[in-house]
Design a protein around this nucleic acid. Structure first.
Ligand SMILES: [Mn+2]
Ligand SMILES: [Mn+2]
Ligand SMILES: [Mn+2]
Ligand SMILES: [Mn+2]
Lengths: 235, 235
DNA sequence: TTTATAATTTAGGTAGACCTAAATCCAAAT
DNA sequence: ATTTGGATTTAGGTCTACCTAAATTATAAA
């Protein structure tokens, strides 16, 4: 006697991301609470409801973990979210720092049928504009999940800040904080951009990074601190 | 202490359509209840809430009417709804009989800013796929409303069933019932299609109608009864 | 092993959005 | 001017999703 409501879907989405797409991976109440911006007590309650619907397994004081069906629903939400982001940026030409909130609302108003049409129209994208992967689906539109663990919903690559001078690679993902995203777009730090770690400051926690064509001519040099450098991943 | 929630927005949307886009036009509790598929008692309660927020004026036992701000919000919902329908049919290639419900969910997950981008991408359409007009907006994106009454959100044209033999015109709108829409699409009774009323049956309540190119050759002849004929409007 | 600290759950409460059943009102027919 | 049937509102109840404050529990330090 109750379907998946936008509220419950948010919990599943968060659970899916926090458990890295793995069935049975426990997530703490406080991790969920801080991710959802909600009081811990609310999480406890909500998780109980999800448990009654067979979407999560809850061990009191230990954590909540997604069941098979819970994982599927959570993955679908993350997929919807990232599909819409792709659409908003690529098709409607919105800025990549303003699409997260819009997608977060749209994802709950998206039937599986609509998601299929949208994905087909977008030629089945593999990542969102920020570089995070879309959970894949079968031909029938169900989210793929092989055996006990599916692919990770989190970004690949290592944080830019942890790289050694001399490293050359390309940006794989940027964490989606509006202010940060605006700066990164400005600086050319977008998924696919070539980056070269030039040097690390001997005293201060600063990395010199060249962004853009790795050829001798072009490319702008940036100073990257830990704040920015841990939000940009490179592979 | 409470924003416009999907629930309230549905009431405003319905109020806007039922009052034909006019400020101060009273709508009965039962009209709202039946349009929204909800008990009359629920409407009374909800209308009280809308009143507290200054969106409607409620005269007990008489009816509810939209205020200026209520009209603007209602119009925006209708506009969002019809924009999404256009998108789903024209861009995602969904069938016109399945887009109403999808749009009804999406409309509440659409910020004014998103609506602007969507409208621009669709080249500011004037009608939804079923022929109903989109409430227009100003350059700033606010829904237009001049003086006391704006443009009607309802379809123009006369019901096909009420026309006299000899009448030639084109379909302006079709009422959005899935089953009916499927039949109409099949029969070519879509907005813009040319129709000629051939004759009215002397005994039975049936109209013979030619659909398609009015030129001598093409065009299919259909028997139209009151059920269908009152759902198709022609101008 | 005890104790303290932080995480978690329980208790109790609010507000929204619905419902059914029981008054109440109004307007139209007598 | 009454009557009365249908529309409307009120009363009382449910369920969801939040909250704060007060227990409770687990674990890391002493
Ligand atoms: Mn979300
Ligand atoms: Mn993203
Ligand atoms: Mn609607
Ligand atoms: Mn329509």
């Amino acid at each position: 006697m109750s379907r998946r409501t936008p509220g419950l879907e948010e919990y599943l989405e968060s659970l899916y991301k926090l458990s890295d797409g793995r069935v049975g991976e426990p997530v703490t109440t406080s991790a969920l609470a801080s991710d959802l911006g909600v009081a811990p007590a609310s999480v406890t309650e909500m998780v109980k409801r999800l448990g009654e619907q067979g979407l999560v397994e809850h061990v009191p004081y230990k954590g909540a973990s997604l069941t098979d069906t819970g994982l599927t629903e959570g993955a679908a939400m993350v997929r919807n979210h990232r599909l819409w982001e792709r659409f908003l940026v690529d098709v409607l030409r919105m800025d990549w720092d303003e699409v997260h909130d819009e997608a977060c609302a749209l994802e709950h108003a998206t039937s599986p049928h609509l998601a299929e049409h949208l994905a087909a129209f977008l030629s089945n994208p593999e990542t969102c504009p920020h570089g995070y992967p879309l959970p894949p689906t079968t031909a029938a539109g169900r989210v793929v999940r092989k055996g006990n663990s599916g692919p990770s919903p989190n970004a690949s690559g290592r944080p830019l800040y942890d790289l050694e001078p001399g490293f050359v690679g390309e940006v794989s993902a940027v964490e989606e904080t509006p202010e940060l995203l605006r700066y990164c777009a400005e600086a050319g730090l977008v998924p696919g951009a070539r980056v070269t770690v030039v040097s690390r400051h001997p005293i201060e926690p600063i990395l010199e990074v060249r962004v853009g064509e790795s050829g001798q001519a072009a490319g702008r040099t940036l100073s990257v601190g830990p704040r920015l450098g841990r939000c940009v991943r490179v592979k």
